[in-house]
């Protein structure tokens, strides 16, 4: 019996092998590249022979004017998205829950998920088509005699544009969990409320919403890990140098710093700060979710 068990162990290790190898090569090995953040990395000399400079890169990063603005932009955009990505899908789920016609309900549900599965490249081409200089909004405004505006190059509204288009793309998808939670609400609650003379607004406010509260709290807590993720794909595909002052986020800044200006060490240092803070935030959010909602991913 014992020999058989160790035999099985061997097979389990073998099964783990391809996946672990994949993680090793493309997730774990790059982690060692982090030491570049503490070096003045020179591609010619490589990681082993580049000069060590301690925390100099980090000190320099915080002296740059860009870095503060980029952090502010990231926080404003990501927190805006986190909040609205909870509220709008919740409102949508509540409204959809009130629909009696099941066929219509199903149709709405089917359609609103579509944008989630389109890439930001595709969506950006459409957003530019709508808000661009000779786009739909300007064309329609032109019918009423308005002059065309350069929305996509206006730094004063660009963050709103980012948050708005993100919410538009994702609200259907984000509503799925609310809709699933709504199916498990006991219908007797509504009947009892109706007998007591509650109108629809009251039963939505006093039954549906409280039933959803645990889900709302859980999703809110879990989104904590995204505070430094303002959405690279979206920003990268929509922004341009005219709106860098408000739209440049950590990820796009790191990309330009590292791969366009070839400041490998600085970009690695900035990336490390981001990864480290995100790691802490996600861990905290999982611990909180486990403590208060008994939620576990593994």
């Amino acid at each position: 019996m014992k020999t058989k068990k160790t035999g099985i162990q061997k097979h389990y290790y073998l099964m783990m092998l391809p996946g672990m190898l994949w993680l090793l090569l493309f997730s774990i090995v790059p982690m060692f590249g982090i030491i570049m953040a503490f070096q003045d990395y020179n591609p010619g000399q490589g990681i082993l022979h580049s000069q060590w400079i301690g925390l100099e890169n980090f000190r320099y990063l915080f002296q740059l004017d860009d870095s503060k603005q980029v952090i502010i932009n990231t926080l404003i955009i990501s927190i805006g998205k986190i909040v609205l990505n909870l509220i709008v899908p919740l409102a949508f789920a509540l409204l959809l829950n009130e629909v009696r016609n099941l066929r219509y309900k199903k149709f709405v549900q089917t359609v609103v998920f579509i944008p989630h599965f389109l890439s930001w490249v595709i969506m950006a081409s459409i957003v530019i088509g709508i808000f661009g200089y000779n786009g739909v909004v300007n064309t329609i405004a032109g019918w009423f005699g308005a002059q065309p505006q350069l929305f996509m190059a206006d730094s004063s509204i660009f963050r709103e544009l980012l948050v708005g288009t993100e919410v538009w793309k994702e609200f259907g998808y984000n509503a799925v969990i609310f809709l699933a939670a709504l199916t498990s609400v006991n219908p007797n609650l509504y009947e009892a409320a109706a007998i007591d003379g509650a109108n629809r607004w009251q039963s939505m406010w006093h039954i549906t919403l409280p039933e959803l509260t645990p889900t709302i709290v859980l999703l809110g807590v879990l989104s904590l890990g995204n505070v430094l993720n303002a959405g690279f794909d979206q920003v990268y595909n929509l922004y341009n140098p005219l709106v860098y002052s408000t739209a440049d986020i950590l990820d796009t800044w790191i990309y330009r710093l590292g791969l366009q200006n070839l400041q490998f060490s600085l970009a690695t240092a900035a990336g490390l700060l981001k990864s480290a803070v995100s790691f802490i935030l996600i861990t905290v959010s999982y611990v909180l979710a486990y403590k208060f909602a008994d939620y576990r991913i593994f």
Partner: peptide, 30 residues
Amino acid sequence: QEFKARDIFMWIVIFCMLFNGGLIPWYLTV
């Protein structure tokens, strides 16, 4: 009990999900 190294592997996998080396180290590795 069934797979002795299970927890160690699990922690490695979780760590890879929550943390990454960042864009530049990853690019240079590839």
